[in-house]
Write a protein that binds this DNA or RNA. Structure first.
Lengths: 257, 257
DNA sequence: ATTGCCTTCCCCAAATCTTGGTATGTTTTC
DNA sequence: GAAAACATACCAAGATTTGGGGAAGGCAAT
């Protein structure tokens, strides 16, 4: 494929501003790259409306139906590899990488019956529960177009960025957020410190600590601090490592991660 | 750049099995792509040893020192963009995308004094606190090699995968994990349900719920359930969305995310 | 068949959090 | 300059969690 064509396809995909436009652009790119089908899936747990997750694909309808109705997503080896891979990967490697599990071959065999052969998947994640993947597949009797995989990688990336933009158009950018002190209290609380200890650490009174936690709860409209903690992690206000690492360095206990 | 050279550089980077080999390969690639410096940073909060985070770069030593000693990482606009971008980006766009914040121009100006001009960053994340970035920069008087950016994108991706592999060689793959029931209790508890309510939901007695939570605490060696919750999220046992989404659908409250 | 693990149930005392208020001084913002 | 938001501090009753025990049945693996 000439380089100019690859660039044209990428700009086409990245300039899509609606699901249908993205569908068209991706379908076009898929054919140009000698793939037979594509599937793009985007999921943002932070988004607060019906656009939080979406899926555009041109898989055979029967396969999509079977996949969903059997709940195959939970045992899909490709999906599992997505969870732990920085880079795009041809499906073949996912069986070696994550170790084939019972049931994997069943999915593989089943998909072939529905016209899904080998595939190439581009996974992407963001901190706090945003994730997506863009997959290109060939028919059961065809081989992956090896010379196209790098283009597919780039294209999958921009397609996912595009999807995020499209979904994001409807997402309120405003996060309630927490004040510095609230977050600080929450962090220590998440580390298992009772309010009394937090008060000493932060050099303020116990009541103030409780007040900060109280305000944090009200901010999120929940009535348990543990929920605030989960929300704060989901929104990236706290990194999981802020808590996990602290245990490693400040406790004799295991917390074997 | 000829395509073969690009592939050769990528395979060189991806076959690195030590930090020093990665350093060499990346430096080599950087020069071939007409960049002047590179920096790769990898961070896995779940890893339990000294290899959980690493940084290889060939920035001017003075800049690295200034950056670290002033704690610029927390206010770096590039780093902020990394948190919210699926794709690689030239630094120029990060100021528009995230909105310039006071202090951004200060960092920008300061970096130029130390020989850091414009840059191009490839961000990558995985669920549960694993993240990395690979950056290529040019001197202050040079422009980004636009025709190289796609190669840089691919190369950054494989470099990060390589870094993960190198760090991962020393990471224990074993996670303590929680049993199904423990996880189920923890999930409802994270959603703010008191043990009494969880008992009704799960159809078991309150004592059993408390027992499950107790065992979960012991498993992680911590004495607060909120810490277990944080650990479980960090390890991907629970998705942030499991909690966040539940509030949206099952409470009249806001939880405006 | 024994061992280990998971699940289930029970009790109790102490520590802790949650909810409902009120209040003052500072900083930011309009 | 006034309003809003923030950080700080206090109190008290009631709900909840936590830590310390003990115990039984099912299930898988050695």
């Amino acid at each position: 494929m000439p380089l100019v064509l690859a660039k044209k396809l990428m700009s086409e995909v990245s300039s899509a501003t609606s699901r249908s436009a993205l569908f068209t652009a991706l379908g076009n790119a898929t054919r140009h790259m000698s793939f037979d089908h594509f599937a793009l899936d985007y999921d943002d747990c932070r988004a607060s409306n019906e656009n939080d997750a979406f899926l555009v694909h041109d898989y055979p309808p029967e396969w999509a139906r079977v996949y969903q109705s059997l709940g195959l997503a939970t045992q899909d080896p490709v999906r599992r590899t997505c969870e732990s891979s920085f880079t795009s990967f041809p499906w073949g490697v996912s069986y070696q990488a994550t170790g084939a599990v019972r049931g994997d071959h069943k999915i593989l065999g089943l998909s072939r019956e529905y016209g899904i052969g080998d595939g190439f998947t581009v996974p992407r994640h963001l901190p706090g529960g945003v994730s997506g993947s863009c997959t290109f597949v060939v028919r059961p009797d065809a081989a992956l177009p090896v010379e196209m995989l790098q283009v597919a990688d780039l294209l999958g990336g921009v397609a996912l960025a595009s999807a995020r933009k499209i979904a994001g158009l409807h997402v309120s950018a405003s996060s309630p957020g927490l004040t510095d002190r609230q977050l600080e209290c929450l962090l220590w609380w998440g580390r298992g410190k009772p309010a009394a200890a937090i008060a000493i650490i932060m050099g303020i009174s116990v009541e103030t600590v409780n007040q900060h936690l109280k305000m944090a709860r009200e901010r999120y409209g929940v009535d348990a601090s543990q929920s605030v903690l989960a929300c704060a992690i989901a929104e990236g206000l706290l990194g999981p490592g802020d808590i996990l690492r602290w245990f490693r360095t400040h406790s004799g206990h295991a917390v074997t991660g």
